[in-house]
């Protein structure tokens, strides 16, 4: 397991994603899996960067735990920003005509679809979002 606290600003997004992905690529050779994980993480991180700290700057703590022998991945995102539970947002209507399509909610829908489990918890004035996904062992 490893963790990092990184300022929640857009020009740190690549650093955050690299921090998560660099260990994953060593364990999981499937590029598609790694890319999907990256996508899910970007969606969460961009939301935190954009909305968690409306009155100033803050940080995001990222915890990543890869259990190789069980083929399980856990990623946690913790911010001290305003209360926000993304799992309460309704899914976009994928069958609606494109003209009516809102642009919100798509990222959340994607990570709920891709991940095996997504959990939200408000703990000690913090937002804690947890991803879990199984992978094929190398």
């Amino acid at each position: 397991m490893k963790k990092a606290k990184i300022p929640a600003v857009l020009n740190k997004l690549e650093d955050m994603l690299d921090f998560i992905i660099c260990d994953l690529v060593k364990v999981v050779p499937d590029k598609k899996f790694v890319n999907q994980v990256r996508l899910c993480c970007e969606e969460v991180l961009v939301n935190i960067i954009s909305y968690a700290y409306p009155h100033g700057q803050g940080e995001v703590e990222i915890i990543i735990d890869i259990t190789e022998d069980k083929g399980s991945l856990l990623i946690q995102f913790i911010d001290e920003g305003i209360y926000y539970n993304p799992l309460l947002k309704s899914d976009p209507d994928l069958d609606s005509p494109i003209e009516d399509r809102g642009i919100g909610g798509l990222g959340i829908y994607l990570y709920k679809t891709i991940m095996d489990e997504v959990l939200y918890e408000r703990r000690d004035e913090k937002n804690v979002l947890t991803f879990k996904k199984k992978f094929q062992k190398n």
Partner: peptide
Amino acid sequence: LEYISSAGLRTIIFAKQ
């Protein structure tokens, strides 16, 4: 193109809308 996120998808929705 090796990677697209929802921010990228939104540009495509924009192009169509």
